[in-house]
Design a binder for these strands. Structure first.
Length: 749
DNA sequence: TTAGGTTTTG
């Protein structure tokens, strides 16, 4: 006869001739045919096979008395072992009859009864275990041990308690609309319910009910076991459990379906989940993500680098750590740098965070996004991600298994992410940048800029400079608290050294308009071909009457190779001129009058050399005829822009960086202007607007000199030469400062 | 034993 699982007290099913035996009277040699033993399963071992292939199952039963030898080993053999192994659980009450009593070989070691019970089916044994009945939550009574079903209304993912165990707090509710908060402890994380979401359905076996603060409370006791199910209506009913052996009936499937339906309309399941792309500052939300890097920051905080395939719409902070402290695939971290966010976890979460495996999928509950801006750059704000200490509101971290539906969806999405789309702007990863800054910063005497002259000067404190007579030159050591403009391309201006005027760099659209205007007038054939240039005219297809004339400047009456040739172009579009500038050394856009070719208005560049457009000062230029160029053509022409400008009577404008640096050395702070053609950044101002590579390089340098989100104390030191000078502003005299003879240190570049 | 739901202030 197989194991019987019955409702209510198992002994009521027993034949009346059977007598209960006490462990203290149990001994070998006595007839056990009319005896039965009843106890609670306090331990069950995994089902195994003996050497001869017989199934074997061992449990420990505890008698409900307090004598010293109140526990006994019970061994099951054959099919009975198999049956018992499937239904018997720790904490169950069990009745065994038809057993043999034999000497326990392990009595000396396990301190249990000196005999053990052997039960095999052929001996007519009929062990019985109680069938599970489930108590509705409105029928709970203190001091009982019950089995429950419920939908999860609230939960704290397992966290390391202050004692020896993991703890998880779970509030469940059922159709009676009564809720029960359960405090579950276990030294084994896997033994706690695997709840991932509000709305999951749980089944608890053998949970203790007691009263606390005038409310019922559930708490783990001996033999507690749980199953967790996805709460989605219609989802497959697959229990999440660490136990390989558990009972599960069709009737229970029905219970789950009913609870799912009930919860769907009675429980607000829509938790605050969000993708990184939907992050809002000042928000608590649950993030499902993959861990790509982790690092210890200090004793009370730990860094997790995660991504979810989407891009956070705000700049997010980067937490500074030593490269050697960062665990994770550096290449991957670099590749994902624009999608990764840094999360700092604090206090009680640190220990769990440390144990997380890189590459694992996580759900981080009640993650806090906080908007902040740096002390030194108040106009630049960024988002910080914090998992604060404590477990309020279910704050915590849970590892999701690979087969979790949300993880599957996340993986599929991550696989489809096109990384090139998100890798704009920065050419260097923030990790690399952070490493450079932290390494160099750790050297107290390291300066991120160096002097190109005046090394003999001693450092002067900024407060001394502020109180000194003007003009003077100084050597200083200070930190770059902030700078303007923050958009670096805005720092490039055009400067006339003759009238000292500064102007914005015209953009391509202005030039395009001028070119279109010129193209409206057809080239005059009378001015084509001369002693010093050869002309060619092309018709444009499908563009009405537009003609393009190109005048190739000759040397010694001969044409030169295109890469050495200056051409004058009339009627071309911006696109065509750009194309020609890739092939020919120099281009001068022209138009034709009745008598001659002439330069365009000085709002347009007078000369294009590769990607560099040269402009002239409208105020200081005194334009000469285009014929003046012939004098240059006679010589061996090198087509230097300054020479071309000179013969054409143009005062050339120079590209410069103009920036305002707020410097602070602790004694005082002052604004100093940086006025630089190329020397300071080692980047020509004339090329930066047309080179994304140079823009990225400049951006990186500024990030190193003035890392966003860094406190003044942690900013790197700069060494500079500055000069003070007076500026007249109407009647007022103003003192200004300018950086000179200084450049960014080579290590930084 | 631990925690016993109800957001840190980094």
């Amino acid at each position: 006869m197989p194991v019987q699982v019955i409702d209510g007290a198992p002994e009521t099913l027993l034949p009346s001739h059977l007598q209960k035996v006490d462990l203290k009277y149990l001994q070998m040699g006595c007839d056990q045919a009319n005896k039965y033993f009843q106890g609670t399963v306090i331990l069950s071992y995994p089902l195994t096979k003996l050497g001869n292939g017989t199934e074997f199952f061992k449990i420990v039963l505890q008698e409900n008395s307090c004598s010293k030898t109140s526990t006994i080993n019970v061994l099951f053999f054959g099919r009975l072992a198999d049956d018992c192994g499937k239904v018997v659980h720790q904490g169950d009450t069990m009745v065994v009859a038809g057993f043999n009593v034999a000497k326990s070989p392990s009595a000396n070691e396990d301190d249990r009864h000196c005999c053990h019970l052997e039960v095999a089916e052929d001996a007519g044994s009929t062990p019985v275990a109680p069938k599970y009945t489930y108590t509705p939550l409105n029928h709970l009574q203190g001091g009982t041990i019950v089995n429950l079903y419920g939908a999860v209304k609230f939960f704290k993912p397992p966290y390391i308690s202050k004692g020896t165990d993991y703890c998880s707090v779970v509030t469940i509710v059922d159709q009676s609309n009564v809720k029960l908060t359960c405090t579950l402890f276990n030294g084994n994380l896997d033994a706690l319910p695997k709840i991932y979401k509000i709305g999951d359905i749980v089944r608890f076996h053998r949970i203790k009910i007691r009263e606390y603060n005038e409310q019922m409370q559930g708490i783990t006791g001996i033999g507690f076991a749980s199953l967790t199910f996805d709460g989605t209506v219609g989802a497959p009913i697959v229990p999440r459990t660490s136990s390989k052996l558990y009972s599960f009936t069709e009737e229970e499937q029905k219970t789950i379906e009913e609870l799912r339906m009930w919860a769907a309309s009675n429980l607000s399941v829509c938790g605050p989940t969000a993708k990184l792309s939907g992050v809002q500052p000042m928000l608590f939300f649950d993030l499902t993500c993959q861990l790509v890097g982790k690092a210890e920051v200090d004793g009370s905080s730990f860094l997790l680098k995660v991504w979810d395939g989407t891009k956070c719409p705000y700049p997010s902070w980067k937490v500074l750590v030593e490269e050697s402290d960062l665990e994770g695939d550096k290449v991957l971290i670099h590749r994902l740098r624009n999608l990764i966010v840094d999360i700092l976890v604090y206090d009680n979460h640190v220990k769990l965070a440390k144990s997380l495996k890189v590459e694992s999928f996580l759900r981080i509950y009640s993650l806090h996004t906080k908007q902040a801006s740096a002390e030194n750059q108040p106009d630049v704000s960024y988002v910080e991600f914090h998992l604060h200490g404590g477990t309020c509101y279910g704050r915590g971290i849970r590892v999701l298994p690979e087969n979790n539906p949300d993880v599957k969806e996340l993986k599929a999405f991550m696989d489809s992410v096109n990384l090139t789309e998100s890798q704009n702007v920065e050419s260097m990863s923030s990790v690399e940048l952070d490493v450079i800054v932290s390494l160099l910063n750790s050297l107290y005497f390291y300066c991120f800029t160096v002097l190109t002259d005046h090394q003999h000067l001693d450092d002067t404190a900024l407060n001394t400079i502020l109180n000194s007579a003007v003009p003077q030159q100084y050597r200083i050591r200070a930190k770059l608290r902030t700078f303007k403009p923050q958009k670096l391309y805005q720092s490039v201006k055009l400067y006339c050294s003759k009238c000292n005027s500064l102007q914005e760099v015209p953009d391509g659209d202005d030039f395009d308009l001028i070119l279109r205007d010129c193209a409206a007038t057809a080239p005059n054939p009378e001015v084509h071909n001369s002693l010093w240039y050869h002309s060619a005219v092309w018709d444009t297809e499908n563009q009405g009457q537009r003609k393009i004339a190109v005048h190739f400047v000759k040397h010694d009456e001969l044409l030169q190779e295109p890469e050495d040739t200056l051409i004058m172009v009339q009627g071309g579009t911006l696109k065509e001129i750009r194309k020609l500038s890739r092939r020919f050394k120099c281009i001068i856009p022209v138009r034709s009058t009745k008598e001659d070719l002439e330069l365009l208005d000085l709002s347009a560049p007078f000369l294009l050399q590769g990607k560099i457009w040269h402009y002239g000062c409208k105020q200081c230029s005194n334009q000469k005829t285009i014929q003046s160029l012939s004098s240059l053509a006679e010589e061996e022409p090198s087509w230097e822009p300054t020479e071309i400008a000179r013969v054409l009577g143009i005062e050339p404008l120079q590209y410069v960086f103009v920036m305002k640096f707020t410097l602070d050395d602790g004694t005082g702070a002052l604004d100093a202007y940086l006025f630089d053609y190329e020397k300071f950044f080692q980047i020509p101002a004339s090329e930066v607007l047309t080179s994304s590579l140079l823009q990225e390089k400049m951006e990186m340098i500024m990030k190193i000199l003035c890392p966003p989100g860094t406190k003044l104390d942690d900013l790197p030191w700069l060494e500079c030469c500055i000069r003070s000078y007076n500026v007249k502003d109407g009647m007022e005299q103003q003192v200004c400062y300018q950086i000179f003879d200084t450049m960014v240190a080579e290590d930084v570049i």
